[in-house]
């Protein structure tokens, strides 16, 4: 999948398109949760491959969320869409949808469970910069508890032979995190020592209202990435962030915008290529998938 994505990076940069691959196919972006970035990325990926792309935003504020989900599934099934990209605020929602629709379902982030295409694009970004994934020390920092990005990255990177660490306050590290195959740290200095990759996670404001961290400034003091803390990592360590960033909460602008260290913009570019590779693979049908 990464190799296929690599070929799409080159294609995209050359300005060429491959509009016949998904011609006549319908891709629906079904977003129960706002995400301009991911939705746009899938939209662009679909269009570059020639698919008809529709965006559906469904409010989850309605009284009965589950009913909405299954009603929507029934509606989409009747429309005979081929590819369904789903973002939902509940873990497992795409699994449920996949049982009810005929289309290929792509998880574009579900609750605190998984965000597979994000992990793929992160891996692609790392591999292009470092030439490999195996043996690299990757530190994932911040709100690991609520992060689907962290879970998918841990799954993918440990599978590919990276050494993954998670760093955060104990209240934001999930129970038995070590069972995921990672080393757990609560101190940035210790956790970042020798790291090749520093992957920051978004801290959502409501985490503070739930009392998991006392304040944004305290979080930034101990877990926010600034130039000083980045100094604990390897001199050529790269800084990543899935976006959108809370500048001054989990990451300092000086670090985020440092072209020598930050690959945050490159992650966005890789996102389109990875999603093209995913759509390409799925559209070739179950017989050719994987």
């Amino acid at each position: 999948m990464l190799d296929l994505a690599e070929s799409y990076v080159l294609l995209n940069r050359s300005g060429k398109t491959q509009r016949d691959l998904l011609r006549g196919r319908t891709l629906i972006n079904l977003f129960f949760e706002d995400s301009t970035r991911t939705r746009t990325s899938f939209e662009l990926a679909g269009k570059r491959l020639g698919a008809d792309v529709l965006n559906m935003s469904v409010s989850t504020s309605s009284v009965n969320k589950g009913e909405t989900l299954l009603d929507t599934a029934a509606t989409l099934n009747a429309m005979h869409c081929d590819l369904l990209v789903v973002r939902h605020d509940q873990s497992g929602a795409p699994n449920l949808l996949a049982q009810k629709v005929d289309a290929a379902v792509i998880n574009a982030g579900d609750g605190t469970h998984e965000h597979p295409t994000q992990a793929l694009l992160d891996a692609l970004t790392i591999r292009r910069r470092k030439g490999r994934l195996e043996g690299l020390v990757v530190a994932i920092c911040g709100d690991v508890l609520h992060s689907r990005v962290a879970r998918s990255n841990i799954h993918l990177l440990t599978t590919m032979g990276s050494r993954v660490r998670v760093i955060g306050p104990p209240t934001l590290i999930p129970a038995e995190a070590a069972s995921l195959g990672v080393e757990v740290f609560h101190d940035m200095q210790a956790g970042l020592a020798g790291a090749d990759i520093v992957m920051m996670l978004r801290l959502q404001r409501e985490r503070m209202t739930r009392g998991l961290v006392p304040s944004a400034r305290e979080f930034f003091r101990f877990y926010g990435l600034d130039a000083d803390k980045l100094g604990f990592a390897k001199p050529d360590a790269l800084v990543m962030h899935p976006g959108p960033m809370n500048r001054g909460v989990e990451i300092d602008s000086a670090v985020a915008d440092d072209p020598a260290r930050s690959v945050i913009k490159e992650q966005v570019e890789m996102g389109v290529a990875v999603r093209m590779a995913v759509l390409d693979t799925l559209a070739r049908g179950p017989g050719n998938a994987g």
Partner: peptide, 15 residues
């Protein structure tokens, strides 16, 4: 139940 499985599935746990 809070633990490795709930962590992997991203489900809120009950200890």
């Amino acid at each position: 139940t809070e633990g490795a499985l709930a962590t992997r599935l991203g489900l809120p746990g009950i200890p």
